[in-house]
Nucleic acid binder design. Structure first.
Lengths: 210, 210
DNA sequence: TGCAAAATTGAATATTGATTCATGTTTCAA
DNA sequence: TTGAAACATGAATCAATATTCAATTTTGCA
C-alpha cells in the first residue's frame, strides 16, 4: 500500500494495461517509483527505460506491459505529483483560521514538500518541455483552486479586493521560484525565514504605508 | 549588424572558433538565428543540427566550424538572452522616478519582451534541463541586480525594509509566471491590466489595511 | 596578384536507446 | 485442481542524429 494508489483508480485510464492481479499492481508501482528516481536524477532525455527496469528489478520487456511509452510513464508521474502536492498542501492548510494564515501555511508546506521531493519537483518543471499539456493542467488546477480561495477570502473581507486570477498566478510563481532557490538549490536555508519574509511581502506590500 | 553582436566580444570565448573574416561573422550569426528558431519551435532535444544548418542555408559541416557541439550553441543562446533581457528592461526602467514606478515599468517591459520573443523565452526555461549552470547564472544575475535596486530603494525610504534577496526572487518568480500565463500562453491578454493587478498586489499587499 | 589562413561541405561513422515480439512462467477464479 | 488470462523476459529491430574528416573553395593581407 504505497503512495502510488493511482493504480486503484477505477477510471478506465487511457493507458492500455491496468494490472489485474496483485503481482501486476506491485510491478507497476515499482516501475513508477523507479521512473521517479531515474527521471528525477537524469532528466527525461537522459533517463532510460532499461535503467528504469533495472532499478525496478524487472525485465526490459515488462515496461511495455504497463506503459505505452516513455512519455506515458512520465505523464503519469506528473499527474500523480499534482494530486500529491495539492493534497498535502490542502491538509496543512485546512485548519488555518483565516486566509493570511492559510497563505503562510500553504507556502511553508510547499517549501517542505519541494525539499523532500526534489525528484518530483524537477519532473514537474521538465514536463513543460516533454508534455506541455500535462504541465499546463498541473498549474491550471493549482491556480483555479487558489483563485477560488482568494475570491472567498475577499468576499469575507479577509483580504482586499483585486483580480483573484492574476493574484493566484502571482503567488504560485512567487512560491515556485522561492522553492527552487531556497528549498531545492540551497539545502540548508532556514525555510521559516523565507516564509516570514515572503509573507510580509504579500501581506503588506512594498509601500511604506501606515 | 544584427542583434548577435556577441560575436564582436573581444574576450577569447571558450568556443574554439571565433570568425576572423566578414563572411565568418555572418555565417555564425546566421547559425545563431537559425538555432533560436529551431530550439524555440522544437525544443532542445527534438531540434536538430541538420535542420539548423538548413535554416541557416549552410552545409552541415559548417556548424562545427563555429560551435563545439549542440549544447554549446544552446548555451550561447541562453547567455545572449540574459544580456538582451536585462538590457531591454534596464532601458525601459531607467527614467522611472521611484522604485514603485520602476517595478511597474520593469514588469511591463518583461511581459512585452516575453511576448515578442517566445522562442528565447522558451530556450531560457529549457536551459534548466540542458545546461543548469547557464540557467542559474541567468537568474542569479537577474536576482542580484534586482536585490541591489531594492536595497537602495529601502535605504532611501521609498519602500519598507525587508529581506531584499528574498524579495528579489519573489518578484522574479511572480513576473516569470505571469509572463508565461498571460504573455506567452495567452496571446490576447491585455498586459496592462496584468501589470496593474500585479503592481497593486506587490505595492499594497493582501491586507485590508487602511 | 599570390598565397596562407579561413571557411565550406556532405558523405560516412558511431552510438544510443526506444520499442517489438515470440516464448515461457505465474496467478487465481471456478 | 486446472487452464485461460496475466505477467515476465531480453535479444533483435529500427530509427535517429550528433560528430568527424579529408577534400575544395573563398577571403583578405602583404
Amino acid at each position: 500500500m504505497n503512495q502510488y494508489s493511482i493504480l486503484q483508480s477505477s477510471a478506465p485510464m487511457p493507458g492500455p494495461k491496468t494490472p489485474k492481479t496483485r503481482k501486476g499492481l506491485a510491478t507497476k508501482a515499482k516501475l513508477l517509483e523507479a521512473a521517479e528516481a531515474e527521471f528525477g536524477e537524469r532528466g527525461y532525455h537522459d533517463g532510460s527505460i532499461v535503467e528504469i527496469t533495472r532499478r525496478a528489478g524487472v525485465g526490459l520487456g515488462t515496461f511495455y506491459v504497463y506503459f505505452e511509452s516513455k512519455e506515458a510513464i512520465f505523464r503519469a508521474l506528473v499527474t500523480h505529483m499534482g494530486h500529491e502536492t495539492r493534497t498535502f498542501i490542502a491538509r496543512q492548510v485546512e485548519d488555518a483560521p483565516d486566509r493570511l494564515q492559510a497563505e503562510r501555511a500553504g507556502m511553508r508546506a510547499f517549501f517542505h514538500f519541494a525539499r523532500a521531493h526534489k525528484n518530483l519537483y524537477r519532473i514537474v518543471m521538465e514536463s513543460q518541455f516533454v508534455a506541455e499539456d500535462s504541465y499546463r493542467a498541473y498549474y491550471e488546477a493549482f491556480a483555479e483552486g487558489y483563485r477560488r480561495n482568494l475570491e472567498i477570502a475577499a468576499d469575507k473581507g479577509e483580504i482586499r479586493d483585486g483580480d483573484s486570477g492574476i493574484r493566484a498566478w502571482s503567488l504560485i510563481g512567487l512560491s515556485v521560484f522561492l522553492g527552487m532557490r531556497y528549498a531545492v538549490w540551497d539545502e540548508s536555508t532556514d525555510l521559516e525565514a523565507v516564509v516570514d519574509a515572503a509573507s510580509d511581502l504579500i501581506e503588506r506590500g512594498l509601500i511604506v504605508g501606515r
